[in-house]
Design a protein around this nucleic acid. Structure first.
Lengths: 282, 282
DNA sequence: CTTGACCTTATAGCCACTATAAGGTTTATA
DNA sequence: TATAAACCTTATAGTGGCTATAAGGTCAAG
């Protein structure tokens, strides 16, 4: 049987409601919930147990993600329709938050996956043939041949790609897994010409403007640590082309240069990239 | 073709990276990212485009939900293992956030459902028979007959229930949909004795300590607005019992008094409750 | 040389609290 | 009744990741 107390001091009210006395004082200060009675001499706050009702409501509405300001507003209006409206608003907000979390999770998994790929791939030295499923990319044509540019220009092109990503409302997640393309006709002639850079999207991404598909199939691959930007890419690419020729394969599509991860090799103010070159073969 | 600038002022660096100049200054201040060069005379900050790399990483890691402090720490350590660890931590954190959101959503939906029930039920006046699916409740025995208590005591009992909810780590969500039970043997004799109050849980809730099941079946129901606590409940309950007798039904289980919603009728500092009485019948 | 667009630092504000300090009140016990 | 412990009060500062503002200095174009 609970002990009866007509007047509850902040501390008691706090204990009973599993809340801090400071918080109760704060609620008083912002005009959200004031004690039943305040001793005019001492300023002591005295609550009544039934004021817990309002505290329950406050905590419940907070739980729905409403701000204390909003809650006070709703208390003042005391209008059921407005409350229902706000619940719907909160539901939308929650959906939005959920979507954000999903994307964040995808980003984290991608990051992790990249780290694992790095750990795996960094042990390999030679070329090999691997099968990839269909992949989606978001392409951007920088109109500058990156093989004739320095890192500075590459950064500027990346910034432009980023602008596109923001413009098209793509989640920024994908921005950690970029690459560049050499079109089939150029790589067949061993011409290192690429003006297009891209981002890997995930399989669930809806097709649309700028979204291209990298077909499923067998790819000749080679991975290496990019030195001072792309300086050693051409050399590695030639090794990969030699591998294709030696194995009796034939180039079956566009050459992809994928930046697997940047982070673990992060040093100073330049990108230290782990790169995987891929050429589809038949 | 992007315009080349060796030195970028905060404003330019900001524009290029879709971030505010203030934020860049802030990052400088907290030692997360300092400009390449600072004019010792004027204090002007000059960035280099390649510093965007670090900004990309920062935004990416922020995206995973890491604090700037954590990010700086990881930058300073520059250790791949620690990064991987933190990604895993973030993933766990994201799972937690997702669970929270799910619960919040459930709470909002429940709230909404209650409002709708209220709108529907408040138009009805007489008793009726309704079918309910199996429901789960969390029971707490206050060891005081609430029909012999005043609202003050009821509030204290509710506080105890709340403590139990916190103790058992149940989500606070459920705290808006409470009720009380009169056991079958008592309601058969029209004895209004109830020491047990409960919360409705949702169907997905795992069974456990204190979790009871209210069986599926047909229930004689009557709803009304509770006046000054439970003062008019007994009267309405008697009407419901009369209805059961008149229709030739028989009491088939425990009597439930469900508080559908409190909010829309919220006034002053006492609970204004919309109540639905339910007696299983056969 | 002016104008206006930039830059600088310093400060306050946001939210929902928490923490601390310095001092006053109540209550339980001796 | 004296005292000590446990409370209460207000006021202030801090949290994080910024944004906003003010007051003043610098730079680049015309």
């Amino acid at each position: 049987m609970p002990r009866m107390m007509k007047r509850l001091t902040v501390g008691n009210m706090a204990k009973i409601n599993n809340i801090s006395a400071q918080t109760l004082r704060y609620y008083d200060r912002i005009g959200l919930l004031s004690p039943n009675e305040i001793d005019p001499q001492t300023g002591y706050r005295y609550y009544h147990i039934t004021q817990s009702v309002k505290l329950d409501l406050i905590s419940h509405m907070k739980y729905l993600g409403m701000s204390l300001d909003k809650i006070r507003e709703l208390f003042e209006e005391n209008d059921q329709k407005r409350i229902a409206q706000n619940i719907d608003l909160q539901l939308e907000h929650l959906q939005e938050e959920k979507r954000k979390l999903e994307i964040m999770e995808k980003a984290a998994l991608k990051f992790k996956h990249n780290l694992e790929e790095y750990a795996l791939e960094s042990k390999k030295t030679g070329a090999e043939v691997r099968t990839f499923k269909e992949r989606k990319i978001f392409c951007y044509d920088g109109r500058v041949n990156i093989y004739e540019s320095d890192m500075e220009t590459y950064e500027y092109i990346l910034r432009e790609l980023k602008k596109q990503v923001i413009l098209k409302n793509l989640p920024m997640v994908y921005f950690c897994n970029a690459g560049s393309i050499i079109r089939e006709r150029d790589i067949r002639k061993a011409h290192f010409i690429s003006t297009e850079i891209f981002l890997f999207l995930d399989e669930f991404f809806p097709p649309g403007d700028g979204v291209a598909i990298v077909p499923e199939g067998r790819y000749a691959c080679i991975s290496f640590k990019g030195e001072e930007g792309f300086s050693n890419e051409v050399e590695e690419a030639k090794r990969l082309l030699a591998f294709i020729r030696d194995q009796g394969f034939e180039i079956a599509g566009d050459y992809l240069c994928e930046v697997i991860t940047e982070f673990p090799l992060f040093e100073k103010d330049h990108r230290e990239m782990f790169i995987r070159l891929q050429i589809p073969v038949k």
